[in-house]
Design a binder for these strands. Structure first.
Lengths: 242, 242
DNA sequence: CGTGGAGTTGAACGATGTCAATCTTAGTGG
DNA sequence: CCACTAAGATTGACATCGTTCAACTCCACG
């Protein structure tokens, strides 16, 4: 159980991905080839199996992860014990307490995850000595910041169905590069995760899902997979949001 | 009216201040003295009167503002024409399209505002040549990112009354340094602004405000000023949130 | 076969949004 | 200085959506 009243000022999940990604274009700005090569010099690779924890809330994390493949969730707990998912994390996302001391969020792998491990002291030293590389981190942080703000709006303004469609859009953006079959969207997380991410109750998620199916917008293929059956309505619903 | 369907990937309101600031401690990490001196070399000072616009959505902003005094709001429009306030901006906040081309948010002064104007090309050049300075920007961005994520949670999880209390807490943190009388909190913005920031309807804001008064938590001194009459309940309510 | 966790479904409740009417306040001009 | 006006704020009635609680189903795994 988590009872930490005094959450530290921390947990910069740099690669935190909010509900809504840009409609078009890739999900995340990637680091340049040279940047990756420089980082590779101080990085090692780690594998996590599904369900494994990458960071624990309160950890004095000594490193930052850069996800290579897989999906993770970054979450914390409400005083009532309920989980809140700040972000789902995908390939190219950076996770770690950059600019903070310790970590407020717990990060757990949803699917098996492969990630670069960047020791924090070495990374900080590298960034401070390499303005060009640091610049890319800054741009990335600004990008995430914008997305987090969009997420905030999305959560406060949109209906249950719209929130789900946004999530599907986000997942699609991240799956497409992996060559997923068009129209099919894989949902690696449980309904409870979806509820905790969208700020809804599990029951509401279930109901909204089936209502979208009744309306012919999506089709539930199985619990882990859906299909967009009405692209125009899907796009229209997304356009209604901000 | 705003009909821009294709909002650019932009508007990094770097200093965006979300609903909830850290309970303790100053609101924003400030730039160091030396950093300010370096920035001052490329900066000029500008004054805005209440209601004046600092940035327009879509502007190809050629500069970034660093607020010295006053309060501003950064907002955009929903498709239905409603305003959404991403953040209130206070002293020390940075506003501008860092890492983006143009600006998606409109920024308007709520009170008279004094701000440093930093020409973007010069700033970028300076940052890229000065890792230490850039580092401070990066830290600030990470800090804002965390706060934006907290804001997102706050909006999706908390009740109307809690959201208002969070806003009061935020305002208090920003007013205290200015020597405001203890317990009194000045609300420079209109109820509509509060509604657009908290994601509530104006009517709900009004009702929640008066309900808090009936419960003895706050006292409405006048439309622009309230007083926390029950600090312990206030603190307890804040502790209930995340 | 059970068993347990995840998911679905139903019914009742409650909080917030919406619409409409009214009140208050600040600012304006006589 | 006062009356008028318009914008902002409040209040009430009602509709809506999401939550909660409870029961039930489905499926994977022993």
């Amino acid at each position: 159980m988590n009872k930490s009243g005094k959450r530290a000022d921390s947990a910069a999940s740099l690669g935190a991905v909010p509900l809504r990604a840009d409609k078009i274009g890739a999900a995340n700005p990637m680091l340049s080839i040279e940047a990756r090569q420089k980082l590779a010099l101080i990085a090692s690779i780690r594998h996590f199996s599904a369900g494994e924890t990458l960071f624990h809330e309160g950890d004095e994390a000594a490193f930052i992860f850069n996800i290579i493949s897989g999906v993770a969730k970054s979450y914390s707990f409400l005083p009532d014990g309920r989980e809140v998912i700040q972000a789902f994390l995908f390939a190219n996302d950076l996770i770690g307490p950059l600019g903070g001391e310790s970590f407020v969020n717990t990060v757990k792998a949803i699917t098996p995850v492969v990630a670069y491990t960047l020791p924090l002291p070495a990374l900080v030293k590298l960034l401070r000595s390499d303005p060009g590389l640091q610049w890319q981190f800054l741009i990335k942080a600004c990008h995430e910041l914008r997305q987090a703000q969009q997420h905030a709006i999305a959560l406060s303004q949109n209906s249950a169905k719209q929130r789900l469609l946004m999530l599907f859009n986000l997942l699609r953006l991240h799956n497409e590069p992996l060559g997923a079959s068009a129209g099919h969207i894989h949902l690696p997380m449980t309904r409870t995760d979806i509820a905790d991410y969208t700020g809804l109750a599990v029951e509401t998620v279930s109901r909204a899902l089936h209502q979208l199916q009744r309306e012919g917008v999506i089709r539930l293929i199985n619990q882990q997979c859906i299909e967009i059956t009405d692209e125009s309505t899907f796009a229209a619903a997304l356009a209604m949001e901000i």
